[in-house]
Simulated assay, not measured.
Amino acid sequence: MEALSEWVIRHRLIVGLSWLVITMVGVLAAPSVSSRLVGGNHVNGPAFTANTQIARHYGGVTSDPAVVVLDAPAGETVRAPGVRAQLRAVDAAIARSAPTLRVVSYASTGSQTLVGSGGRSAVLLAYPPKDGDDMGPAQIDALTHAVAVTAPGLGVHGTSLRALEAGNTTSQSVLLAVGDPVRGLPDP
């Protein structure tokens, strides 16, 4: 490395002229290169494919959903009869209390893609009633609280894109917030 730095120092004029030539070539090539760039959405990624499949099966996906992860008790999986009953109870409670939410869950679909590796957790996606709306932190808090009250045997973690952007996740706070007057959540 020292030999290179010594050579550069001894040949400053050559190095400076080389950088000038490289800069000129870049300035001349930039217009032709930039015209080859393609803007907009690229519809060949895994996220686009997943959204297309979800839209085909469950409705529009122009909204960012609430993502709720439900963990089975220690030593059990989401396939256990008691855990499945709690997962179905969660879906039923959401349908009663917020009938306009579009819910995609392991309990409603039986899809293994909504089950975590090891079978100890399941994902529930709750889409807002209107396409284009997003699930914000307050909605996530209310949803995870309702889930925790409905199925107290399950671990509940929730977030959404808006919650992450705001720096909020309820992955642990739902356990601390139950009955916390500061958060405004009632006792179960």
Results as ranks from 00 to 15, higher is better:
113 T>G: 13
46 P>V: 11
119 G>E: 09
171 S>K: 10
89 A>K: 05
138 A>N: 06
140 I>K: 01
126 A>K: 01
56 R>H: 13
59 G>P: 00
16 G>Q: 11
105 S>K: 06
25 V>D: 07
29 A>M: 13
161 L>Q: 15
66 A>M: 06
85 A>N: 10
76 E>F: 11
21 V>T: 12
104 V>M: 09
62 T>I: 07
116 G>A: 14
111 S>Q: 10
8 V>Y: 09
10 R>W: 07
43 V>F: 13
15 V>A: 15
93 A>Q: 03
96 R>V: 09
19 W>L: 15
151 A>P: 03
141 D>F: 04
185 L>F: 02
122 A>Y: 02
7 W>Y: 13
122 A>N: 04
181 P>N: 01
39 G>M: 07
27 V>W: 12
139 Q>R: 15
54 I>N: 07
174 V>S: 02
4 L>Y: 14
146 A>R: 13
43 V>M: 13
151 A>E: 03
122 A>Q: 01
130 K>D: 15
101 L>W: 15
181 P>S: 00
94 I>H: 02
23 T>S: 10
144 T>G: 01
75 G>E: 10
17 L>V: 10
3 A>S: 14
63 S>R: 04
97 S>L: 13
142 A>R: 01
142 A>W: 00
138 A>S: 09
111 S>D: 15
95 A>P: 03
2 E>V: 11
84 R>W: 10
69 V>P: 00
100 T>S: 14
19 W>H: 12
106 Y>W: 03
98 A>F: 09
162 R>V: 13
23 T>W: 11
172 Q>W: 09
4 L>F: 14
141 D>R: 12
80 A>G: 05
134 D>S: 14
45 G>S: 06
159 T>G: 05
100 T>Y: 09
80 A>N: 09
13 L>Y: 13
16 G>T: 15
79 R>D: 12
27 V>K: 07
43 V>D: 14
83 V>R: 00
128 P>W: 05
171 S>E: 14
123 V>P: 00
99 P>Q: 07
118 G>E: 08
103 V>W: 02
121 S>I: 09
6 E>Y: 02
35 S>C: 03
58 Y>M: 07
65 P>D: 08
186 P>C: 08
177 A>P: 04
49 T>F: 11
104 V>K: 02
26 G>T: 02
129 P>R: 14
136 G>E: 03
145 H>A: 03
113 T>D: 15
120 R>Y: 09
6 E>R: 06
133 D>N: 06
